[in-house]
Structure formats: structure tokens, C-alpha cells
Design a protein around this nucleic acid. Sequence first.
DNA 1: GCCGCCGTGTGACTGCAATCACATCGACTC
DNA 2: GAGTCGATGTGATTGCAGTCACACGGCGGC
Lengths: 239, 239
Amino acid sequence: MPSPYNLEVEYNCGECRVRAERLFCNMATSTVTALDSVKFTGLYPKGSLLFVEGEDPRGVFILCSGRAKLTTSSTEGKTLIVKIAEPGEVLGASATILGKPYEVSAETIEPSQLNFIKRDDFLKFLGSHADACMHTAQQLSEKYHSAQREIRSLGLSQTTSEKLARLLLDWCDRTGEETTRGMRLKVLLTHEEIAQMIGTTRETVTRLLSDFKRKKIIDVKGSSMFVTNKPLLEHMVSV
Amino acid sequence: MPSPYNLEVEYNCGECRVRAERLFCNMATSTVTALDSVKFTGLYPKGSLLFVEGEDPRGVFILCSGRAKLTTSSTEGKTLIVKIAEPGEVLGASATILGKPYEVSAETIEPSQLNFIKRDDFLKFLGSHADACMHTAQQLSEKYHSAQREIRSLGLSQTTSEKLARLLLDWCDRTGEETTRGMRLKVLLTHEEIAQMIGTTRETVTRLLSDFKRKKIIDVKGSSMFVTNKPLLEHMVSV
DNA sequence: GCCGCCGTGTGACTGCAATCACATCGACTC
DNA sequence: GAGTCGATGTGATTGCAGTCACACGGCGGC
């Protein structure tokens, strides 16, 4: 299938091969059919703004493939990255359900496939398909869960190095690959973006990472980072 | 009706007079009947621990009357108050739905009435009553929304005074009464607890409040606080 | 009355991280 | 090769808030 952005596209949810693995999408055949009839499949290049904080909710985006960053900004221009959304997540659900403005902005950081559902259609869909409603509740629970983790990290960390340690450990759990040299992480974010994830400045991130390298906690080779002393990282967050 | 803790109790949801005002409880008669058959009504004194962070989810608590604080703690003993829950809120829903440990602890800070529903019963109840499932999704959306506010406050504030200003403005919106001397707030929390809400220390809260008094932004009379210069507070958070 | 407890008010000191400023380095354009 | 641009590395300075220490006042118990 020819497709832009080198992306494998699936226009038909009924035929989607990864559907069963997805918390939200894994639903009864009849429900999937209903989903297919209201959704709009779109391909988005890196850097596409899906919605902006404060905007009235138009509907939800189901992230089929690719990744998106969810951010919130202060009026002074300081930006906080709340979460990096992974495939299978539903974006904008809470605002759409409540009819309140989007509480974050969403921007793709990779070429991505998204299925958009208009607000009215989505609400009707949830009302008439119990399993979809249940899966939405699960999605929202997941979102709340990860927001709670973020709150812990921001509110309970004594120092910035503790926040960074928390972030790296999070990455190990989520995307780390075990190797003989320690956990390997693909660092796809700049120091600036890492800073925005833990609420600090770019310079501090650079300094702390140098520090970690000096202390042999991590080892950076190109865009790969090896966590060579995970226990020490864990010690930094718990004590 | 004689009742402990000077609390007006309603054992029967079907007869509850405030039900229609509650986001979650406002559901079809048949659904309420089902709810009544699985819930356990309990009265709890101030300081009751409903559940503890990290514990496996036993079920959900519907806060009928009273208030509860939701907290998360670090291993060093530092505590962060995530939210003060108000009547109508459902506590522990996300953990119960996902089957993951409670992400926060819940403790009553006033004598409270709560309806408890066991995990299995709650999941069955949601599965068989579409409106209850929808209302749960709304509750979860609200929870996510307020968690997002907390993240903004913790992550984007440059200084502690900004966080405190944010908190006071929040209180104005939520429980403030307009008076000729400015918004009146009932301060039911100690400086220690305020500190735990914004992730700082007791001393800093005392100092900042003195500061605000000196600058004629607030005026404290007993357990009442008058916000006499709200625009200045707003200026502190946006610049 | 006395005592103890808890919440509050303040001073002195210190350290971490924000800020500003500039250097370096790689990639890509022209 | 010169020039630009974004990302990274590093030094010097400063200020905010955490920490420790102690004083004061109200309130309940006895």
C-alpha cells in the first residue's frame, strides 16, 4: 500500500491487526463496525498540532501509530510536557466528555496515524455501546494514573536530580531494552524537551546528565543511552 | 433521625434529596435501585483512613457528605495533598477499574458519610448499567481535569508565592463568598496542610501569608480569610 | 493555677538551581 | 570554505526557599 510519511496505514478498524492489543480498541465486532462508521482516519506529519489547550473540544483522537506530546503552557511561555502519548491512547477524551476546554495541547512528534471522532458522534457512540464506554473509563483511569505519577514526581522530589532519576527509571520500565551494558534507552528528546518534562531548565539537564555520566550511572553513545547503574538511580529517588 | 457525628444520614439512595445535583449519582431509577443493592453505607469520623496508596483496590467509596483529603507520600515521609474531595465524588474509581494499586491515600477530614461498593460488584454494576458507566467516565474525566490543574500549578509555577496565589484563587472560585471586604474564604487547613498542598514547607507558608497580609492582599480574622486584592493575586500567577 | 501540645511567627544560614553569557560542535545550505 | 542554525557544554553570579532553632500564644486536661 503506498502511503505518505513511510507509515503503514489501516483505514479499516475491523481489519486492524493490532486491535486486540489496544486497551480502547479491543471491543466487540459490532462496536468496531459502529466505530468505523463515525471515525475519520488521518495521517499527520511530525509537528502537527491536534488540539490546543483552552480550545473547546471538537472531539477525540485515537492514536493508531506514532507518538504525540501533551503539553501545557504558562502565559510567560514556559512549557511543561505532561506526557508522551503512545499508540492505542485516546487523546482529548476527558475534555470531550465534560464539554470543557482541552486541558492540554497535543502535538505529534513522529509521523502518526490518528482516527478522529467528532464530539457528538463520540458521545452517541459511548451511549449506545456499553463496551466502548467501559473501555473509555479504562482509558481515563490510565490517564489519571499517569497524571498522578507526574504529580508525585513534581511535588515530592526534593531536588532536580531526583526528578531526572525518576524520568530515566520511568523510561527503563516503559521502553528499556536489557543489554549486557545495562538498560538501553533511545533518547529521542532534546535536553530542552527533557527539561520541559521535569519542569526545569535546559542548562540544568545538561549539567545533571554530565554528572550522571561522571558518576558512571549512565553512558551515552549517539542517540542511545545505557543505564549502567540502575540501583544508584533508584537510591536517588527513594532516599 | 438520631445519628452519630451530628451527620444527617441517608441510607437509601432512592430517597436521597441531593442525588440530582451529583454528577455520578444522578441516574435512572432502575440504576439507583441496583446501586442500593450493592452498596454499604458507612459513617466515618474525622481522620478515618479509607484506603492507602499502594494497597490493592478493594472497591470504590462514594462521598455522600463530608470531605476527604487525597494524599501521596514519599518514602522520606514528605506528604503531598493532591486534592480535597467534596461530596458527590467517587474515590478510588481508577484503581478499582484498572485493578492496579490505589495511587493515592484517602482520609476523611470531617465526619463523613460514604457508600462503599466492592470491586466485583462495582465492575458488574458498570457493565450492566450504561448510564452508571457513562457517569463514571464523567467522574474520571473530572478527576483527570483536576489532576491536570495540579500538574500545571506544580510544574509551571516559578516561585512558591505563585503556587500559593494559585491555591487561593482556586479557593475563591470553589468556595469563596462575595462580601464587601472581598472574597471570604473559610480556612480549615493548617499552614502545614497548605504547605503539603503546594509542595513546600510550613515556615514558607507562614512567611508568605504574612507577606500577603503586609501587602494588603489578604486579611485574616480568625478562621476567615478575606481576599481584598484579587487582581494582584491574579497578576502573580500570570506574569 | 500549672503543664503540655499544637499551631504560628521569625531570625540566621546555606545550598541548589535559575539566569545570563559565551564557547563548541555537527549538520546542512549556498 | 564560509556562514547559519540548533543542540550541547560550562563558568560566574544571585536569589529563593529549605533547614534548623527558638519564642510566643491559645487551649484542653487535670
